[in-house]
Each structure stands twice: as structure tokens, then as C-alpha cells.
């Protein structure tokens, strides 16, 4: 029978490393995606994701279950990302060949070449537009889009009210729409 997150947390708090490893295996991909959405650089995102789980391990004894484990781990991830982003100097979405071994191969599906060019152009512009958002705006966009989180959960992770989440999302989307008006 599969253990719940909370049962794994309790085992981790009691010093069971395998239980913590299981928690990492459940959330590492999602946490990495959220961090990449915020950091916009794979190498930095990988570093921050590993640091996030390392910090979670160190703090797991103080986690009392006031929120769900995923809210807690995302809170650590978002805070780490925002801190790291302020120091980040690398180009967005740089990719080092040496990191190939860390990622699974992605199967690209063949598409109509014209649509492919249009899509690529839109994606490139969207990527640029996301890069220009503030860390706070990026955070709400990424948590809502990747995770489909409710405003309440996003507010819990970012430490702000649902009203603030709603307002940040509105302005972030407006900025993206303004920058991509030629494509939308």
C-alpha cells in the first residue's frame, strides 16, 4: 500500500532516509518545473531544486503539518528561486552539454513546418516576455499554469492574501498580453 505524504514525512522525521527519498521522487520533477519557470535557466534550476530538497531534509523535523507537504516544499522552492534569481547572471535557458546525463531524451513529434515556425516564434517571444516579469509575477504565473493551484494555495506558498494573488495574476497576464499582442 502506498504511504501518504504525511506518513512519509513522519517516517523522515524519525530518521528514515528511504521515506525522504520517496518524497523527493514524488516531487522532484514538479519542483524542478516550477523552479525552471522562475529561474529560466536549466543549470541554475537544477542546482536550486537540489538545494530545495536538501533544505527540506534539514527542516523536516520542524514541519508540523500545518499545510500539505507539497505547499511546504513549493514554499521552500519559490523562496530559494527568488533569492537565487536576484543573484542570477546566466543567460536564460542556457544549456550545458555536460548536463545531458541528467535529463531524459524528449521525443519531438513531427509537425507542419509552417506551423512549427509560427509556434517557435510565439514560444520564443513568450519565453522572453516571461523573463521580463518580476519574480513575484513570475511566481504566480508559474504556480497557476504548471500546477493549476488555487489562489488560496498560491497565497499560502507566497505568504500573501488571495486578493494579492488575484491582482498579481491580473497584472502579469496583462503584461504578457501587451508584449504578445501581435501573436494573440
Amino acid at each position: 500500500m502506498e504511504l501518504s505524504d504525511w506518513q512519509l514525512v513522519e517516517k523522515s522525521q524519525a530518521g528514515d532516509a528511504d521515506a525522504f527519498q520517496e518524497l523527493v521522487s514524488r516531487y522532484h520533477q514538479k519542483v524542478f518545473m516550477v523552479i525552471l519557470g522562475l529561474m529560466r535557466n536549466r543549470e541554475d534550476a537544477l542546482e536550486v531544486a537540489q538545494e530545495t530538497f536538501f533544505r527540506a531534509f534539514r527542516k523536516i523535523k520542524s514541519f508540523q503539518g500545518g499545510s500539505s507537504f507539497y505547499t511546504w516544499i513549493y514554499r521552500i522552492a519559490v523562496n530559494n528561486s527568488i533569492d537565487a534569481q536576484r543573484k542570477q547572471k546566466r543567460n536564460p535557458l542556457d544549456f550545458h552539454e555536460s548536463m545531458d546525463g541528467l535529463f531524459e531524451a524528449r521525443n519531438e513529434v513531427a509537425k507542419d513546418p509552417f506551423a512549427d515556425v509560427q509556434d517557435r516564434e510565439l514560444r520564443e517571444n513568450m519565453s522572453k516576455a516571461i523573463n521580463e516579469l518580476t519574480p513575484e509575477h513570475k511566481a504566480v504565473i508559474v504556480l497557476r499554469t504548471i500546477e493549476g493551484m488555487s489562489y488560496k494555495d498560491i497565497g499560502e506558498i507566497l505568504g500573501c492574501s488571495e486578493g494579492t494573488v488575484m491582482s498579481r495574476l491580473h497584472y502579469a497576464r496583462k503584461k504578457l498580453q501587451d508584449k504578445l499582442s501581435a501573436f494573440l
Binding site: G37, L102, F103, E104, S127, I141, T145, F183, L184
Partner: peptide
């Protein structure tokens, strides 16, 4: 916008081993 955002954010993230 939401659809494109979702596509961009999910396709640029590779599957981690």
C-alpha cells in the same frame, strides 16, 4: 495566452532522471 504559457513552461522543462 494561458494555453501558450502552459505549452512553453511545460515543454522547456526536460524530464529529470
Amino acid at each position: 495566452l494561458q494555453l501558450t504559457l502552459g505549452t512553453v513552461l511545460s515543454t522547456e522543462a526536460p524530464q529529470l532522471k
